[in-house]
């Protein structure tokens, strides 16, 4: 689904890299060339990308849980199939993102272990619960909508494997976003009860979705290097503003009210939103969101209960390889 706005660049190259190579690397970036896995790159570039791509992958996988919560309860067979296919797509995104991260030299197992140990983060948005069917529509509409805002620029990220993965991911996300919005349209055209369900979901998701873009630019510390390396092309606030401007008319079309009474439209057409409660954001990042513990527990349970299966597959593969070698020797 989506990675948090990360701002996690390691800014110092520890002085170990050759300055000439670093300059040449930057020249390639400036010329909009793609960096490929076997190319030389600064250690900090590798580290920043490994962290960003793996956090993005973890977000896709943890993001399966809140929506997966409704697969068995979807209200019609068509909705059930669409939701299952959507959650399966998120899993696919996780897989290609782990593959992209592996091209930087860390294995999927190491990356997953870091997440399960609580050392690697995933997007804060998945620490909120899906309470009603309208949450499934709202996640598609807003969470996937915010993800697309963030990921479209990543299609031009300087690192080739990540940029290419993003092109495919964005195509699917845009389909999910339309599907989510269509669920909202149906609810808003439905009974009073359904419309109330839609409004309630918007009320609960609106502010957490705005937080997905990360801290405000004024307090954001690490963007400079990511910008110079063309990993990040727009600031958190720029992306957040684009998202709000795109979303307000969509809410109006639905007849829903954005839960921000102080919101106003500028003369230049931009919708100005009220102050975001960054205390809540920090609490969720610190592990105190409504579902942090449940999400981690679910991922750990799947991992631990699946251990014997993975061991069996590895043991069988090893046996088969031995038998083939023995046969070849005969």
């Amino acid at each position: 689904m989506y990675t948090q706005a990360l701002n996690t660049a390691e800014t110092d190259d520890r002085g170990l890299e050759d300055a000439a190579r670093a300059a040449q690397f930057q020249a390639r970036i400036d010329a909009e060339e793609r960096i490929e896995p076997n190319d030389w790159m600064p250690a900090a570039y590798r580290k920043t990308l490994t962290r960003q791509i793996s956090q993005h992958a973890h977000s896709e996988i943890v993001g399966m849980l809140p929506e997966g919560n409704w697969i068995t309860r979807a209200p019609t067979l068509r909705r059930k199939a669409a939701l299952l296919a959507k959650v399966q797509d998120e899993c696919g995104h996780g897989l290609y993102l782990y593959a992209a991260a592996e091209t930087l030299g860390s294995s999927r197992e190491e990356l997953v272990d870091a997440m399960l140990a609580g050392k690697a983060k995933y997007s804060s948005i998945f620490n909120y619960p899906t309470l009603t069917w309208a949450d499934i529509g709202t996640i598609g509409w807003l969470v996937d909508g915010a993800a697309i805002m963030n990921q479209i620029p990543l299609c031009r990220c300087s690192y080739g494997p990540y940029a290419r993965a993003m092109i495919r991911v964005c195509k699917e996300e845009s389909f999910h976003q339309r599907q989510g919005y269509e669920i909202m349209v149906m609810l808003c055209r439905g009974s009073e009860e359904q419309k109330a369900m839609a409004q309630d979901a918007l009320n609960r998701w609106w502010w957490p979705v705005l937080m997905m873009f990360g801290p405000p630019d004024a307090t954001s510390q690490h963007s400079d290097t990511s910008t110079r390396w063309k990993i990040k092309r727009f600031s958190n606030d720029e992306l957040r503003q684009k998202f709000v401007d795109a979303t307000v008319p969509q809410a109006q079309y639905l007849g829903l009210t954005i839960p921000d009474p102080g919101m106003t439209q500028d003369a230049d057409g931009h919708w100005r939103y009220s102050e975001i409660d960054w205390t809540e954001f920090k609490q969720v990042l610190a592990g105190n969101g409504p579902c942090n513990r449940d999400r981690m527990a679910a991922r750990r349970k799947a991992h631990e209960e699946g251990a014997w299966v993975r061991e069996a597959a590895a043991a069988y593969a090893a046996k088969r390889a031995r038998r083939r070698t023995a046969q070849a020797a005969e």
Partner: peptide, 14 residues
Amino acid sequence: SEWCGHAPMLEEDM
């Protein structure tokens, strides 16, 4: 579908 998100490996979730 009850397995989705809980399988022993991502390939099996898929």
